[in-house]
Structure formats: structure tokens, C-alpha cells
Simulated scan of single mutants.
Amino acid sequence: MPTYVYKNLETGELYEIKQSMRDEPLTQHPETGAPVKRVLSTPGIAFRGSGFYVTDSRPQSKGEGGQGGGGE
């Protein structure tokens, strides 16, 4: 289950609440009953650069290291 971040509209405090992706966003904190709103946040992991996917396995161009240069 994903973790969503909610903000208390009265105090500004942030909460992390686990709930199903199919559940509707909460409008009240489940324990205190205070009004809350779901906040967008960045994911915990980000893939950047090449080499993370099968489709990224392409040959390197000349000058990017590996083969194709340097004398002995």
C-alpha cells in the first residue's frame, strides 16, 4: 500500500497515512477528525541516466570511453 502525505488545514502539520490507491482521499484525519488535504510529494526513488531499463542497452558512441581511442 502506498503512503500518502496529508496536511492538517488548521495547524499545518503533515501526516503520512497508508491507504489503498483505490481509496478516495481523506477529508478528515482518522484519529483526530481535523480537516486534512492530500499533498503532492516526490517519490522516494528516481531513476536518472541510462542503464536502468532494457531499452537503454544501446552501443556507446565514440568518445564516451570504452573502445575507440587511446594509444599504447
Results as ranks from 00 to 15, higher is better:
Y15P: 02
P43T: 15
G44C: 04
E13H: 13
G49M: 09
S57F: 15
G63E: 02
P30T: 06
E16H: 10
N8H: 06
F52S: 09
F52A: 13
S41F: 06
R22M: 12
P25N: 11
P25K: 10
G51P: 00
Q19I: 05
M21T: 13
Q67C: 07
M21I: 14
R58E: 14
F47P: 05
K7N: 13
V39I: 08
V39P: 01
K37W: 09
S61L: 13
S50Y: 09
E10K: 11
E24R: 12
Q60L: 12
G51R: 02
I17T: 05
D56Q: 08
P35F: 01
Q60F: 11
A34C: 07
K7I: 09
Q67S: 10
T32C: 09
E72C: 09
R48F: 13
T3Y: 04
S20R: 10
P2Y: 12
R38Q: 15
P43F: 14
Y53F: 13
S57A: 13
Q67K: 14
T27P: 04
Y6R: 00
K18I: 10
K7R: 14
L14N: 08
Y6H: 00
G65Q: 03
G12A: 02
G65P: 01
S57Y: 10
Q19W: 03
Y4T: 02
G63K: 01
V5S: 08
R48D: 11
Y6K: 01
G70R: 00
E13P: 06
T32G: 06
R58P: 05
P43V: 11
F47H: 10
T32S: 07
T3F: 05
G69M: 05
E24F: 11
V5C: 12
L26H: 01
G51D: 02
P30L: 05
S50W: 09
T11A: 07
M1D: 15
Y53E: 13
A34T: 05
P43N: 10
Q60D: 07
G68D: 03
T3H: 05
P35T: 02
G49W: 02
G33K: 04
L26Q: 00
V5K: 07
E72R: 14
G63Q: 01
S20F: 09
Q19F: 04
Q60C: 12
P2T: 15
F52H: 07
G51S: 03
Q67D: 13
N8M: 03
E13Q: 12
G68V: 05
G70L: 03
Y4R: 09
H29I: 00
K37T: 15
G65N: 03
Y6G: 00
P35S: 03
H29C: 01
T11Q: 09
E24I: 11
K18M: 15
S57V: 12
S20E: 14
G12V: 00
K37Q: 11
V39C: 03
Y6N: 00
S20N: 11
P43D: 14
T11F: 11
G65L: 04
S41C: 09
V5R: 10
E13L: 10
Y6M: 03
L26M: 04
T27I: 14
N8W: 05
T32E: 09
S20Q: 15
Q28T: 14
